[in-house]
């Protein structure tokens, strides 16, 4: 897929952003169910740099979640190579992958995925627990993260006592708390109404301004337009990449 790569590299604003965080080369993912094989990613090259805010867009079944699972080190490639923040992820075992996920990635899921029995701050501290941060420091950092997402008064509420938008903000706080290299969000607004969607996207804007790397997966153009770069996926291939302001404007203009 040399053409895709040419577009991506040709439009990469090297000066504005830092070191590469994601380097995906000739990535193929083949699902096998019984004798049937399905190629969900058919040779994807993608580079995302430190501080970028990227939306991955595409129709249903195009391979967005597959790509996100690969980027999140939740699944491994059939062929191709993936480097995350300088680590070669291809040949790591499950324990090493767990450590990479813990250090480098903050997940935000469509379903929030909070543990219902735990108070908000207990949910937020989970990544720190697996990073073996001592207890008192965990609590302080969890509370700071909750304040950061505007839930300073909701430390001890359980997820069931919070609205959907608030739950997703707890999830964002959880994604932030370990100071990961990148925040990876799969349809983070898929279950939210327009007000809560604006809450969460506003949060992402602020985080981007603070220099965080954000990769957001969505099929909604309005959501994608909040990002500084849109990568379009279709049938397991990258169809377009608006790496520059000019291109972004075209896409935004086209939609408006």
């Amino acid at each position: 897929m040399t053409t895709t790569r040419a577009i991506a590299n040709g439009n990469m604003p090297d000066k504005e952003y830092g070191e590469p965080v994601i380097e995906l080369t000739a990535a193929r993912k083949v699902y096998r169910s019984g004798t049937i094989e399905f190629e969900a990613l058919r040779g994807v090259d993608l580079e995302i740099r430190q501080g970028e805010y990227v939306a991955i867009m595409g129709p249903s079944g195009s391979g967005k979640s597959t790509l996100m699972n690969i980027l999140g080190c939740l699944d491994t490639l059939t062929t191709g190579h993936y480097r995350l923040a300088g680590h070669d992820v291809d040949d790591l075992d499950e324990a090493e992958l767990a450590e990479i996920r813990n250090k480098e990635i903050g997940f935000v899921f469509q379903q929030f995925n909070l543990l219902p029995s735990l108070e908000a701050w207990r949910n937020v501290e989970l990544p720190l627990m697996y990073a073996r941060v001592p207890g008192h420091e965990r609590r302080a950092r969890a509370e700071r993260a909750l304040e950061r997402v505007g839930l300073g008064s909701r430390f001890v509420n359980k997820p069931g006592e919070l609205s959907g938008g608030q739950q997703q903000r707890v999830a964002v706080a959880r994604a932030l708390v370990g100071e990961p290299t990148m925040i990876l969000a799969d349809e983070p607004t898929g279950n939210l109404d327009s007000v809560s969607t604006e809450d969460v996207l506003g949060l992402f804007d602020e985080l981007h301004d603070l220099g965080r790397t954000i990769v957001l997966i969505t099929h909604e153009l309005e959501v994608a337009q909040r990002a500084r770069r849109i990568v379009r996926v279709k049938d397991g291939l990258i169809q377009g990449d608006t790496a520059e302001g000019a291109l972004l404007a075209t896409v935004a203009g086209g939609a408006a």
Binding site: A95, N102, L126, Y130, A131, R174
Partner: peptide, 13 residues
């Protein structure tokens, strides 16, 4: 699902 989440957040096996 909880196990999956804990693993995603960095729980080693």
């Amino acid at each position: 699902r909880e196990i999956g989440l804990r693993k995603a957040l960095g729980a080693p096996p």
